[in-house]
Write a protein that binds this DNA or RNA. Structure first.
Lengths: 126, 126
DNA sequence: CACATGTATTAACTCATTTAATACGGACGG
DNA sequence: CCGTCCGTATTAAATGAGTTAATACATGTG
């Protein structure tokens, strides 16, 4: 499904979160689709199930997935997906980042071009 | 000069980096201006000088400041400030973030509005 | 020379991260 | 009903990043 980078200094559960979000954003994991079980993904990545559980717990709190005991974890339908709180955090992070980009001498036009390209991609995963 | 947030889960040196960058971006610390010495800032914030040193070392590597032994640390003039490598990292972070914002249902127009506001502020600190 | 600066080193402590070993309860197919 | 897969919780231990502390050295300034 994906690989972890052991040279990456970030915690493993953060990497797992990022990769799972990536798969959802790319539409590879679709709405209501079942994602690998805690034990299965742990086995695939050769890391401890508790670490996967930690990542899944975070993703559920942020609204990306939901868990059903005895069945598995599933992708939250897009419309209701990301929590309000998480959205605000993303906006705050954007403002901080854009200020740094401006200070670094990057032109606004350049940023808008980058954003255009991303938004030009069709929204998948419905 | 500024305060640290002990409830913040991030490392102290990361917070110091963020605050110092903020002061430079806001033009409160200007080009070629001397910033507080390692020992002085450590005393002000009631934290260890080594932690400040760590933050300053990072800021120097990223191009925001430069150090002169026996004299102090100074703000790098804007034009040469942020290193090429740091710029690329910022761009990469932006792409990642915008993808998440799109998935979260935020409209492109909304993002552009936010960016416009930031770039509308005059570039200070020259 | 006295003093402030940046820088380096070593040791110890705290705490987040990760692993490990179990355990419990719900869902499902045979 | 039973075995197996699922999510979830708990406790203990090991590892490593972050932080403090004490100290030392080199350089610039008055």
């Amino acid at each position: 499904m994906f690989q972890l980078d052991l040279r990456d200094s970030r915690p493993l559960y953060e990497q797992v979160k990022e990769k799972m979000k990536m798969l959802m954003m790319r539409g590879i994991l679709k709405s209501e689709e079942k994602i690998p079980s805690v034990r299965e993904l742990a086995h695939q990545l050769t890391i401890n199930p508790n670490t996967i559980q930690r990542a899944y717990k975070d993703l559920e709190m942020e609204g990306y997935i939901y868990a059903v005991k005895g069945k598995g974890n599933f992708v939250t339908p897009i419309k209701e997906a990301v929590s309000e709180k998480k959205c605000e955090q993303l906006i705050t992070a954007l403002k901080q980042l854009v200020q740094e980009l401006m200070y670094a001498g990057i032109k606004e036009k350049q940023l808008v071009t980058i954003i255009d390209k991303i938004y030009a991609q069709p929204q998948k995963g419905e």
